[in-house]
Nucleic acid binder design. Structure first.
Lengths: 208, 208
DNA sequence: ACTAACTGCAACACACATGTCGCAGTTAAG
DNA sequence: CTTAACTGCGACATGTGTGTTGCAGTTAGT
């Protein structure tokens, strides 16, 4: 996939495997600061020579793909450990939110790579999307989501909220706190449930 | 600001002004297809020589700034014509949503330029942000927004929803339809108001 | 019509990231 | 210990975007 010598031929030597890991982590950090950073910068951050980067990842795009792949793998794990298709919808959704929130802060830059081609349908693994959709559908069937809402919109809103939360969230704040906020907003919005139309349509103090 | 001859010295000739407009529009369209597109591509799309682009915008970054500036100007107009500080909060918010939704589809690429440095605080004009915040605050005072919600979060959610809607929305669909959807989701979320905890925590059909 | 301004064209210098290679030294694996 | 594999280093070729300049031709403004 991402690295040049085909895995099928022979397992990589231990230090080579470590180099790959170091490069990926370094790339994440460097690209977080500057998405158009040089591979030279990535190499030095990883503590390897630039040539080594090219040995492990044939091109810049190849490295990019590897980063996206990392996200999808971690996301898959998060989905799996949230038991999205066995646990009660509400708890599964909550678990997934917490995990994704953490994933977002640790791999900001790589995630941005995904968001950019979000319109292209490329980026996020379709399998991950369908798992999420299945969970949302199950949530709707269980009465958690309003019947009229269509799943793609629900998914979009959910991911948008997570994105927003991870953007605002400072690193020392707990993920669960923000997960609560996301869930609350997702399900109930930020409006007051007992709308008082008289007040809402009243003129503001300045004009009255 | 954006163009090389200082405006203060003498007004630009009519065709020069037109060139600037053509270039900005072309840049928007070209960058929408490929954010890292060449200035050559922008020039040909605008029907001018590449040198002319450099005459009007000293550097690539300068062009970028001009695009961001365009957005902020149009956003300012949208805020003004929505009467964000005189109209009832609900209608002002709705008006603003419709306008922004259209702005988002016509200037996708330029808006993305803003989103990228969203973390840097640069990008969106602080003045526009404070006007929006004021509207949200007024909405909260009027009882439209739940009392506990803090404004930055409200703003973030609002903009995230608009972004999501503009991403999904196909060009032929009406802005008002999506504005309704955004407002609905913003205020009430996508959850069922009458949560049935028994059902939500029930095991899924597969395990029962 | 006259003039200043703007444009197209074409060439140039420049910087810089990218990708490739070979060699010598080091490291992990059996 | 022996060997195959991996690394660092340095050099090279290459492509490509960028920004600049000069000149001749065209256009808008008065």
């Amino acid at each position: 996939m991402s690295d040049i010598p085909h895995r099928s031929s022979r397992p990589l030597r231990a230090d080579a495997e470590q180099s790959i890991a170091r490069i990926l982590i370094a790339a994440e950090q460097v690209f977080a600061a500057d998405p158009s950073a040089t591979l030279e910068a990535v190499a030095s951050a990883a503590g390897v020579a630039r040539a080594t980067v090219h040995r492990r990842f044939s091109s810049r795009d190849d490295l990019r793909d590897a980063l996206v792949n990392t996200i999808n793998t971690k996301l898959r794990d998060a989905i799996a450990s949230a038991n999205t298709d066995t646990a009660p919808p509400l708890v599964a959704l909550y678990q997934l939110t917490v995990a994704t929130l953490d994933l977002k802060v640790d791999w900001r830059a790589s995630w941005q790579l995904i968001d950019l081609d979000a319109t292209d349908q490329r980026g996020i693994d379709p399998s991950n999307i369908s798992h999420l959709d299945a969970l949302l559908q199950r949530s709707q069937d269980a009465g958690l989501l309003r019947p009229g809402i269509d799943i793609p919109w629900a998914r979009g809103v959910y991911m948008a909220l997570i994105h927003e939360a991870s953007t605002i969230r400072s690193e020392d704040e707990s993920a669960s706190h923000w997960a609560n906020r996301v869930m609350q907003t997702l399900l109930s919005g930020i409006g007051d449930n007992e709308h008082n139309l008289e007040a809402l349509l009243a003129q503001p103090p300045t004009s009255d």
